[in-house]
Write a protein that binds this DNA or RNA. Structure first.
Lengths: 233, 233, 233, 233
DNA sequence: GATGAATGAGGATTCATTCAT
DNA sequence: CATGAATGAATCCTCATTCAT
């Protein structure tokens, strides 16, 4: 039986590595200096997180200076350390914010009985749309993971979790005779996830893939279905 | 007619983005301070390049200090600048060296009449093997491209060139009825290239994919063939 | 009618190139890093400017090291950059300070009806006195202008302004039959200005002219009056 | 009796401070490493001196690097030290060369009985012409004297010698009733010398005085004659 | 809580000068 | 004599982090 909802789908073919990275409640590598107690504190912290996001998006993680962030937030340099212990900490907070935003994705519920391919298509469409919406941050995450071991570890750990689940889903499809039995489920899960997420990166962050989002959805969906050898009903 | 040699094959399905990146004779972003005029100079420069490679591989590009490199090479700090203008310049020189090595890949000649799939397999095997051999440097390149605009630009420009060629190859297969005609050739070229190269990265650089190289070759080859809808003869 | 006050006189025969250079409100080539916002900051900045002056006067502009200045001020090396962007910037601040001092010159009011020559004499006396008082800085300015284009440009631009005014004054005297009509007003203005200011330099900075200030005043005044062909009443 | 030749004149009113500076055979602050013994050596040394002049004129004394000079001369870096001990040394050699050139100035012989003013005029004309011809080097000398104590001392010592002679000449004119007896001969000698040489500097080096050489000669001559109170016959 | 000045470790870079070949 | 590579002392400058007010 086909998956019924996108949420269910995600449990099966989830390649949304980066997105879910922050959606998960596994602790981010954050050791926030202090939780704001007063209303003023809450406001200042919010300003700082917003400022950090702007500065990160504008200058990149490495080039961003603590000073720039506090200046952008309109607070004194020292105030940064009232709320964060480091640049990494502030970055985690920024991702947390995105997290909040992305925890409520406008995912269309998929009706029962949809065929596997159209479900995959819907998932791809949703994933690409949210990736595009947060392209700058996704690019940042890529950069930070490349530079900071803690973030890299975090990403890898989670990717593994997704792959595990996806691998199981693929295995089930194979057992039901709906997918190519020659494929190694784990490797396959990894490969197709990576294909989609990397294309999203190349398209929306690097701007090297010149295609409409719709064309992207169509092509990736077909490639995916083909690759797994999914029988069309 | 199927491609006859790996060389020919590369002209068709070349996803060896990173590898060829350095193999090409398009200039690397290198502005070396000086070409050594004496034998002694040649020796010192070579020492420095080797030292740079060791230090980069050990500490990463960002953490590497010029001082470390000259110390590792056993020369005075200032001598670094006799041969390079910057850390980037030294990095380019290191990649150049890899370049030399990879310009003579031990590519097995594929006999005539091999079916397309076995040719793809051979190409994948060769690519993964060389990626593995130079895994540390490939990871470095990934990191540097994330941090340095010049190297990023360079990579993107070249990737585009490969995709162009691959897209044409796919289009030809489609015309001959050997591949799924529903696929957009350019997007497809991009997607399958990225799938393979990214899996190589995740496996040999990040170590997250836990599989034998052979299993990897088998799975990627099958996924690729499936994805393109290649008819088996 | 003869000029009545020294202020009026200056508008006529002003050769005080270097002095007025800093007295003018045309911006010095200064891009100070930061205006101190606290009392402590004001104090530190003042200490730095004083230290800079001492070090410049002691070692000259070129030999002065940022380190020396911060050490002399009793602050950390990095603190220099809280207030200045460069050595040039600090130098501009030092000159600014002199500026303040010289904006309130103790110029004796000249009584009405004084004859032109005695007015010139008073002006010369005042100029030489203030030059002497700030001899070390005037020497520094000479040195810096020789080495730094921005300061050179500034000086030249201002010198031009003075010459313009002086030339007009000379032209008026010629029209009234009070000065030699054969002289080119602009060149003459330049020449006599330069004669006095250069003598001040040679005397108080280089110490090559061995004469009392009074003798200098007398001789320069007489040379000047003679040169212009001023008729004595 | 009026002076008969320009040479004689120079002995009287010589303000050609900078020029004669190098024309004199008082040793320049030069400790040349080695006098070339072979023909090849002579050639190399000449190349180096020429190159040094070009580089000094192009970049200024401070910015000029030994490396630039040897490169410009087309010799190895080390060769510089075969002939010079330092940058200062090379500079002295360059001035020496100019010296050679200026030892044969095309000075027109002044016939007997010329009146003093026309003699002064001729001297001014000759001085300004040679200053103009070597403007770049004169500017350099100004710069170097500002920066290097040895060159400064040298200049001052010589200037003093000239002033001495000129002061005697002026005193003689005063005794004969041909010049204003109120003037201090030494100070006057200094002042008029400086006026002319400084105007030459401002005109030909700094380019701030906008006048034809002829206008300059006329004005300076008249100012000078006026200043000394020379009676016209 | 906010402020903003002070700190100082840390690395890059330059170039005159030496010297083995 | 010429070569040109090696040396390394000498400063500059940045910026995360602390802390007194």
């Amino acid at each position: 039986m086909a998956p019924r909802t996108l949420v269910e789908l995600e449990a099966n073919f989830n390649y949304m590595v980066e997105w879910e990275t922050v959606a998960q409640h596994q602790a981010l590598p954050s050791r926030t200096g202090q939780a704001p107690a007063s209303a003023r504190g809450t406001r200042t912290r919010r300003e700082l997180v917003r400022a950090a996001r702007r500065v990160f998006e504008r200058d990149g993680f490495l080039a961003a200076r603590i000073t720039d962030i506090s200046a952008e937030a309109g607070v004194a340099a020292g105030s940064f350390y009232t709320y964060f212990t480091s640049k990494e900490d502030a970055f985690a907070a920024v991702m947390e914010e995105v997290n909040e935003e992305m925890l409520h994705p406008r995912l269309v519920q998929v009706t029962d009985g949809g065929d596997p391919v159209s479900v995959i298509e819907a998932a791809n469409r949703a994933y690409l749309a949210s990736y595009r919406r947060n392209a700058k941050l996704m690019g940042l995450l890529e950069q930070v993971a490349q530079v900071n071991d803690e973030f890299r570890e975090l990403r890898l750990r989670r990717a593994r979790a997704f792959v595990d689940r996806n691998a199981q889903a693929i295995a089930r499809l194979q057992q039901r005779g709906l997918a190519d039995r020659e494929l190694d489920p784990r490797l396959t899960a990894h490969a197709v996830s990576t294909m989609v997420s990397r294309m999203a990166y190349l398209t929306y962050v690097q701007g090297v893939v010149d295609a409409s989002s719709e064309a992207l959805v169509q092509t990736l969906t077909r490639l995916w279905a083909n690759a797994l050898g999914i029988r069309r009903s």
